[in-house]
Structures are given as C-alpha cells and as structure tokens.
Design a protein around this nucleic acid. Structure first.
Lengths: 203, 203
DNA sequence: ACTAACATGTAAAGCGTTACATGATTTA
DNA sequence: TAAATCATGTAACGCTTTACATGTTAGT
C-alpha cells in the first residue's frame, strides 16, 4: 500500500503537521525563487547542508509532492526554449508562507543531533593501533578544513544579496564551526600522543 | 511480515554486515562489563551520547537480540537475590570481539552527520523577529553549557580506570566541543546584533 | 557514436522512533 | 494505596536511503 503520510492539520494551531525536513525544503523555497527538485538539492547541499543534513534527491521530490498536496507549494512545467529539456519547478504559496512563518515562530526548536563517525571510532581506541587512529584524525581534519573552505567561499556569494543576510550569518557560523572542528581534531591528536607516550607505546 | 533485517555475512571480509548502531552497542559491551539493555541505554547516554546520538530503549533491545542471533553477544538471566527482579544481561563473545575489532580497523569511517535544529531556525531569520532569534540562541547556549558541564563531570569518573583512557580522551573532546558550541552561539548573537544595528531595527 | 552528467521520478527495504503493554519495585 | 520509577519488551508507523528505471543533453 502506498504511504499515506499526510499533512493532517494539527489540532492545536491549524498548521499542517510535517516533519522538519518538509519545513526545511519549504524554507528553501521561502527565499522567493522558483526551483526544480534537482536545483533545490544542489542548493541545499551548499547552504543548509553545512549545519542540517540535506536530504537525498528522491526525498526532495517526495517532499515537494507532499508540500503541493498540502497547498503549501505549487509547481508548473517550463519548456526552456528549443533544444532544452522541460522541467517542473516549484514555488511557495501564500498559505505556505503563512504556515512556514508559523512553524518558525511557534514550533519547538528541534534539538541538535550529532552522529560523529570519527569520534565513535576513536572512542573504541582499545581495538585499534595508534597508526589507524592517527589516520582517522588526519582524514577528519581534512574533511573539516574542506568544509570550512567551502563555507568561506559561499559567504562571498551571499554578499550583495540583502535577502540572504541570515543565510550569510549562518554560513559565517558554519565557517567557524568547521574551523573549531579542525582544531578539535588537532587537540585530540595531541591528547592521544601524550597517552601513547605515557604508555611507552609506539615510541 | 516480520522484519528480516539479518546479519548476513559480508561477501568480502566475512564480517556480518550491520548498521553503525549495532557496532556502537557492541562497542559498549567491548569494555568487558555484562550489562542489561536498560543499563546499556543509561551508560550510552552518558558516554557515547556526547558525540553519537544514542538509540532509544526499544532499539537497544532490538540490537541486542540481533547481536545475540549473530553470535556476537550472549545473554543470561540473573536473579539478583530475594526481593529483586530478575534481568537479562548481555556480554560480548569472542566472535563479537573479533568482528568488532575488524569493523573498527577496516570498515570505512562513517561521515559526520549534523542536524542542527537551532541553526535551521536562525537560517530562516527573515521569517522571525529578533526577540525570537535571541531566545533560540540563548536556549542553545544553555544547552551547550549544560552538555559541557556534564562531560566535565564524567571525565573525572573515567579517571582511575585505565581501560577507559580512550573514552576519557573522547570526553575531553566533547567538553571542548560543547564549549566551542557555546562560544559559537555567542559569536552568532553578536553578528546578528550588528545586522540589526545596521538595519536600524529593534534599536 | 559513446560516455558522462543532467534530470525526474518510483519502489523496496531498513533504520529508528513513538506508543503501547506489562508487571515489579520503591516512595510518599 | 497510589504514584513514580524500574525494566523489558512488541507493534505500528514513517522517515530516509539505495537501487532502479528512464530519458535528455553535452562533451570527446
């Protein structure tokens, strides 16, 4: 049977009861541009994705369908001149804006969720060799530095658009976050080296 | 039909193909103590939970069953004297140790996943009032400080146990992580105040 | 002509949570 | 004796991903 995950009215405030991801996708549309699922995904990766895990293509398409069913978004098909493929683009509706604003102002803020793969490995250090753990930390350091660099670049792209002040501030936060993440990796490496020195392992 | 999510052998390395959460639960058992599902959950919250979202009670029970089916853990029922209820406690097996060590050393490290509810709200600042955003940041700051404090306390509990060196180092990392998170919230608040000053809003 | 990337979806599977059920033990 | 907490689970639900299907466009 098909999924009947609807968008029933919340009994309290009349706002549809949707998962965060739906609101996040609607949030992407709230900046006023008409976008296709594909473009939405790419944009999500370069903006929201720095601090909020960005959904897969297939989920984006599904969420868009759900938003349209709920009347929070509308789609239309555009034929982009000759020799280019037609695509379906979505826009937020007035009802969508109202609902999203209501959600942003009134819904309880979701707690922060962290699933830190590298830390999980290092926490199980008693099962590994120092060399492997150094490798995990080095790789994570590179990842953090790469993310920091990307955020730095994207901040510049957000300048000159006054409708993107808040995304720009969020990107600034992300730049600092990944810088901290990089520094934390270095700090942990030092702590580990000290542990190994004290134990006389791996001199 | 019941879930048939098994623990089939991986065709490559002979190690059962399990989701990270299973390995994480087995990892909790790898420190050598025999624990019940209930105790496991509580311990997960105070250790792994600082950097790796800790599963619900019901999932822990499910994972334990799966681990036992796969031969990576064994359980036995203990009657704890008169006047106390019997409980089922789990221990890692030799096969479990071997499999977990293999996973820790050879499986690709899962990327870090972040779902930062507060940042998602602030990114949608154009839908809110400054007062609400200040509230979100203040609340997050408190959350981060509380987590930092908990990590600080638990580090002391991990001292004097040389089998917990790596968990202790991970807790030290967590303490710094939540301190950074707190500082980042403060930094963002300053950035936002400046934006509002420049706009002449909310003077 | 062939390949890689673009673009839009559907279907199936599984991860993980919430809600519920049950009963014992402790505290007020 | 009532309520809260401990303790162990089951069932249903739904979020999310992976795999698949399909066709287009651009580069070599």
């Amino acid at each position: 049977m098909a999924d009947a995950r609807g968008a029933e009215e919340s009994p309290v405030d009349g706002r549809p009861n949707l998962p965060v991801t739906s609101w996040a996708v609607l949030g992407l549309l709230s900046f006023g541009r008409e976008l296709s699922g594909y473009d939405l995904k790419k944009w999500a990766d370069r903006s929201m994705g720095f601090f909020f895990w960005s959904p897969s293509f297939s989920q984006i398409y599904g969420e868009l369908k759900r938003l349209e069913t709920a009347g929070l978004a509308v789609s239309r098909i555009v034929d982009q001149g000759t020799g280019s493929r037609s695509k379906r683009i979505y826009a937020i509706t007035e009802a969508g804006s109202v609902a999203l604003r209501g959600w942003a102002r009134e819904a309880p803020v979701e707690p922060m969720v962290l699933k830190h793969g590298p830390m999980l490995r290092l926490w199980l250090g008693h099962l590994q060799e120092p060399a492997q753990m150094r490798g995990v930390l080095a790789q994570h350091r590179e990842y953090a530095e790469e993310m920091r660099r990307r955020a730095e670049v994207d901040i510049k792209a957000a300048r000159d658009h006054q409708e993107w002040v808040y995304p720009a501030v969020a990107l600034k936060w992300a730049e600092r976050y990944y810088q901290a993440e990089r520094d934390l990796a270095e700090g942990m490496l030092e702590d580990l080296e000290q542990v190994w020195r004290e134990r006389g392992e791996d001199a």
